[in-house]
Design a protein around this nucleic acid. Structure first.
Lengths: 121, 121
DNA sequence: CAGCATCCGACCGGATACTG
DNA sequence: CAGTATCCGGTCGGATGCTG
């Protein structure tokens, strides 16, 4: 197997850590998945789809994803305001990898939960 | 594209969120990658490879990964003590997906960093 | 509707000291 | 060597109230 990472020691210079640190928050990956499945979505649509995210964290996370260039934000000058979010090309290129992880999670969650139970004892 | 997640709203019952929440910590994925690349490793080996992880967090994270059944821990009754960690079959099955993410990160980090810079302005 | 501002508790994780 | 125990500060994120 080829070595993907040569040096873990300098976190700021390690692309993997740099990127994965971003996904370490509570909502980023989930928002990307939701947008990947539903295409263009409005703020409240995402809010309702996820269900238990606070308005604050949705705003903050959307801004971060936008700063990273993973999603785009389009404001329509209407009243009441309409803001639509969608994946950029860059963000879309990440979706398959996230979906693979999600599929893995679905396939192995039972095994993991059972392992957690056993470990308690 | 097929829908992988039907319901995001109940986080405890959503396998994806259940699993991804685990990887939301600072070190889990990195430790899995290190073990994936180096095979069997001792405590201090992992410590030095990562470089800037504290002893406490390494211990805690290793225990969590062990509880999830992703890594195994073998203690050798010697003095000084030797403890070896390696991926389980379950943990190993996750490696390709993590590596895919890492590869993606390496390929797109420049684009992401440049996007972050532009967003500041 | 889509946010911003503020407050605040929880907990994540680092530093340090100690041990079999 | 491979931990455990304790302390403690920073930050993540929820709740609430307000706005164009």
């Amino acid at each position: 197997m080829e070595k993907i990472i040569e040096n873990f020691t300098v976190s700021a210079n390690c692309p993997v850590r740099n990127v994965l640190d971003r996904f370490g928050d509570k909502w980023s990956i989930l928002i990307l998945m939701v947008l990947g499945q539903n295409g263009t979505m409005r703020f409240n649509e995402i809010n309702k789809t996820i269900g238990d995210i606070s308005q604050k964290m949705l705003t903050v996370t959307l801004r971060t994803l936008e700063a990273d260039g993973l999603i785009s934000r389009q404001v329509f000058p209407e009243i009441p305001p309409r803001v639509e979010y969608q994946l950029t090309h860059l963000g879309f290129s990440l979706i398959p990898h996230i979906n693979n992880l999600a599929t893995w999670a679905n396939e192995h969650i039972v095994e993991i939960k059972s392992s957690r139970e056993k470990f308690k004892v």
